[in-house]
Amino acid sequence: METHEGYRSLISGDWRWLVVTYSFLVLFDLLPGFLAFGLGTFFRPYGFWWFTLWAGGGIAIVSAYVGFGSRGTTIFEPAIASLLYALTLLAAFEVPWKNAEGYRFVTFRIALLVFAFLIGLGAAAVGEWIQMRKERRLNLAGEGSESKVGS
């Protein structure tokens, strides 16, 4: 029963976590990057590798946190939010991805969106896995203490 509910929630998703993950990405990746360096001034000389690292790292950390911190299975919400976040960056900012050489522009954009989705998905899955391990450990500890009380 639990597994069935789990699968159903995995497919249907929770729109609130989608909104929260996207907002977290704006708050914890975009804003610190903007305040600390100014998106244009810092990333211009270093090219798109630095920017990719910054954005990818932010997506991974936030998605993993959401996967870990949310109750139940929250994997697709962070992934979709990551995709939307990458889409926002591409559409709204003069990011160095526009100047990436050696790539066809449209293909490169699609590849970036896919990467953002995959990073979000993978990081959220890692977060879920850590959460699961933690809860199992807590359950085991609970059972252990109960048996001690019982004896």
Binding site: E2, E5, G6, S9, D14, R16, V20, S70, R71, G72, T73, T74, E128, M132, E135
Partner: peptide, 11 residues
């Protein structure tokens, strides 16, 4: 993995 619950995680 654990299923989602109805009790709100958000304030």
């Amino acid at each position: 993995m654990y299923p989602k619950t109805d009790s709100s995680e958000f304030a």
